[in-house]
């Protein structure tokens, strides 16, 4: 037993427990942070970078309110360590609107009134953004699956999936034009 542990240890890179430097590329900007290895990406975004759009609701990967995009994939930032994101590209809700113009998803959420309290909205939008970046022609089922890990207690679901489809339509028409 002791031997096995020893062998294993040889291949493990130990990080922490003290703060360590990490380089994060968030919303097209570079950040140098000093964080404990256990710091989640969510806490790093909210507490170290002041980006409070992603929300802490359950802190255990059950609700999706903390969803951000890492290298094109939607992730629960509460289940992701900040140090895992070294050299990766992170997108949060804060950078979706560009040059003072709303993203198609943001526009569609407003048109369809796809929220009530708005607390889950950043997560919903980021999950759908990851979908639409990859698939510009999603079906209703695609849209539902994309947000199936995002709880909305206000129950705006029918409007959320309409907004997802509507945003795809807006994006397609922009491309066509």
């Amino acid at each position: 037993m002791a031997k096995a542990t020893k062998t294993k240890r040889a291949s493990v890179t130990v990080r922490g427990p003290h703060k360590m430097p990490v380089h994060l590329f968030v919303n097209r900007q570079d950040y140098e942070l000093h964080v404990e290895p256990r710091r989640t990406l969510l806490d790093a975004l909210r507490k170290d970078l002041g980006l409070t759009g992603a929300k802490k609701v359950c802190d255990e990967g059950t609700c999706g309110a903390c969803t951000v995009i890492v290298d094109g994939k939607p992730v629960y930032s509460c289940l992701t360590l900040a140090i895992e994101c070294e050299e990766k590209s992170i997108e949060t809700i804060e950078a979706l609107a560009q040059d003072g113009k709303l993203h198609a998803l943001q526009q569609a959420f407003i048109e369809e009134d796809a929220y009530q309290c708005g607390f889950c909205t950043p997560g919903q939008i980021m999950s759908l953004k990851a979908l639409l970046d990859e698939n510009p022609n999603p079906t209703l089922d695609d849209v539902k699956r994309a947000v199936s890990g995002n709880l909305c207690r206000c129950g705006a679901y029918p409007k959320i999936f309409r907004a997802g489809l509507r945003a795809a339509e807006i994006l397609r028409s922009k491309k066509g034009a």
Binding site: R46, T52, G53, A54, K55, K56, T92, I93, E94, L96, A97, L102, L105, Q106, F109, I110, E111, D113, Y115, G118, F119, T121, P122, I125
Partner: peptide, 21 residues
């Protein structure tokens, strides 16, 4: 009329401040 919510823009921008923020 179905006017958009007065808080709509901030909500989709992720700018709305909730107590935890």
């Amino acid at each position: 009329q179905s006017i958009p919510r007065v808080d709509a823009i901030d909500k989709v921008l992720g700018k709305t401040q909730y107590p935890g923020d």
